[in-house]
Amino acid sequence: MSLVNAAVSSAVTIAEKRRGRLGQAIYAGRPQRVIERSFFALKSSTWLGVVSGFVEPVFYLLAFGLGVGQIIGNMTDGAGNPVSYTAYIAPALLATSAMNGAIYDSTWNVYFKMHFAKLYQTMLHTSLGSLDVAMGEIGWALLRGAIYAIGFMAVVTPMGVVTSWYGLLAIPAATLIAFGFASVGMAVTSYLKSLQQMNWVNFFLLPMFMFSGTFFPISLYPEPIQYVVMALPLWQGVEMIRGLMLGIIDGALFVHIAYFLLMTIAGLIFTTRRLTALFMR
């Protein structure tokens, strides 16, 4: 066995290649290796948890779109054109689907890895940096959100709810939503210290899901409340995807994109700092 001589350079030369680069103390350029580990973990995990997060929005679509929608009749979209109720809520549920996927991984799973599995300590014993770990874990949560979004699109498109070719852009948009939620989700989770506190996440998410223009337009609210809702990330996501799926492309779209880019970057910075503070003290 050649533990000392023959290939000793490999791990070391790989690490030394990054010498002198910006952020070399926190970033080794390998978040994809953290994602790879998640694929291994997924192989031996139960698929039920993965599937449940995906079917939930589909059930909502069936119950409200096909059920309640029959009673309601048509809605009007942002440009004043009539749309079926199913077509109105489908984009909102797609945004929710992306959010659910991202949040599930970046809250419960991250909490478990942080406090019970001690996975991040282990990773940080290698030549990975805290930004690699943050990006890898957020990247995984983002992938999950994106996969939920693709699955959701596959289910709803045959129902005729996508009325524009821009609708295809709903998938990258949903991925961006997942990125934002995953990134902030992991940052928030890093501050939570008990499972009770973890429930606060749900306490916040459920009303946001109900009232972010998901099932009815926010113009029904008094004006001050409208502004509160508009500040919430899910409303931003719902509006972004609704615009794309119904083919209403305007300046607001770029505001929504900027909102999620900002959310993503802020989440990444906070998560990296927290990982450093928690596990490299």
């Binding site: 791990a11 070391v12 690490a15």
Partner: peptide, 26 residues
């Protein structure tokens, strides 16, 4: 180590007190 954390860690093998093995993996 303050400046070259990842680079130094590439030279080291660490066996922590609580093994901290990845229990989701084989």
């Amino acid at each position: 180590p303050d400046k070259f954390g990842p680079e130094i860690r590439a030279h080291l093998g660490v066996v922590p007190q609580k093994d901290m093995l990845d229990r989701e993996l084989k």
